[in-house]
Design a protein around this nucleic acid. Structure first.
Lengths: 177, 177
DNA sequence: GGGAGATGATTAACATGTTAAGTGAATTCC
DNA sequence: GGAATTCACTTAACATGTTAATCATCTCCC
């Protein structure tokens, strides 16, 4: 299986192809790729279980976030579940249709919507949570609790260190807002 | 500043919600969320530049991967750029339409397609690369080269430690679908 | 050499990511 | 107090993620 093609051109160090180009970091070792691969490795563990309960990763994130509060406005929920507004709008529409959440208008501001998890939603959470916890525990066991804590700390530090980094574009950088 | 309700679960009015549930890890500190946020913080830096050149993140990944080889089969490219087949199919169709890549059938196997970057594609890469390198350098400077290396190492280790973790589902796990 | 099954790639269908535009309600400012 | 602006979503439009199904080979085996 997986036999490399005849003249395997493997991006070895020093190919004629690479001769006339900018060297660049080895592609698969870029930070974004490392983060992507790591996250995928983790999520791959959870997805099947969620799927069995009819939930996507994002839907689960939302319900999960809702269990931590009594009720919450949409914008704040977006921040908490780390979703963009448009995605959240769609998902809330769906979850409301399935009666997993409830939505009402804010009392003093008709623009704002207030969301909360329903009894049915809570029930679903309770059905999924044990498996999720088991998986998370197994991940922790495999990787090591200490290393896991370290990793999380570094990830937070990375995020923090990039916080104020203005995206100064190369060409046209018009009208700073 | 986002005041996060660290441990206090907000009893809420009249709801014994938190009382009968599994406590669960504080949501925003779960590993998937940490990875997602970190990756987003990084990609946020690159996206504007790519966008200015008419490229999405994934299109960039593909072109980038193609510069490391002379030519490559689609499946192998998918593995290299960490994309699923269907996504890659769509993107290749688009990139071919823009003449940024070239595609031909493999000589000995009509099922396989062989892809390579075009001169135009190379030119585009060369136009974008300097900015990307600058951004990457700035990220490295801010976070620290040593810490960056450590982080990448831990991410790789995480991925490795989860490698053979069968997704043992909870309820119904039947052999077929 | 022909049929069953495996394989590489694409298409289909649905959900989300991402940016821009739209809508209705609150705020500001004159 | 009303036009202009801001605000909190929501829609729209397009690209990708994800799983399943399809299609065209290719291989194996009788």
């Amino acid at each position: 299986m997986a036999r490399k093609n005849s003249n395997d051109i493997r991006p070895g160090q020093g190919e004629d192809v690479a001769a006339r180009r900018t060297p660049m970091r080895e592609f698969s070792r870029s930070l974004p790729m490392s983060l992507l691969r790591a996250r995928e490795a983790v999520m791959r563990q959870f997805r099947p279980s969620l799927r069995n309960h009819g939930l996507t990763e994002q839907q689960w994130r939302i319900l999960r976030a809702l269990t931590a509060v009594d009720e919450i406005e949409v914008t704040e929920l977006a921040r908490m579940a780390f979703l963009l507004g448009p995605s959240l709008s769609r998902i809330l529409r769906d979850l409301e249709g399935r009666a997993l959440i409830e939505r009402k208008a804010a009392e003093n501001d008709a623009r704002r919507a207030v969301v909360s998890i329903s009894a049915k939603g809570l029930k679903l959470i309770e059905a999924v949570a044990p498996t999720s916890e088991t998986i998370y525990a197994e991940i922790t066991r495999r990787f090591g609790a200490r290393k896991l804590a370290e990793l999380q700390e570094m990830l937070g530090a990375l995020e923090a260190s990039l916080a104020g980094m203005g995206s100064s574009d190369d060409a046209e950088v018009e009208a700073d807002e």
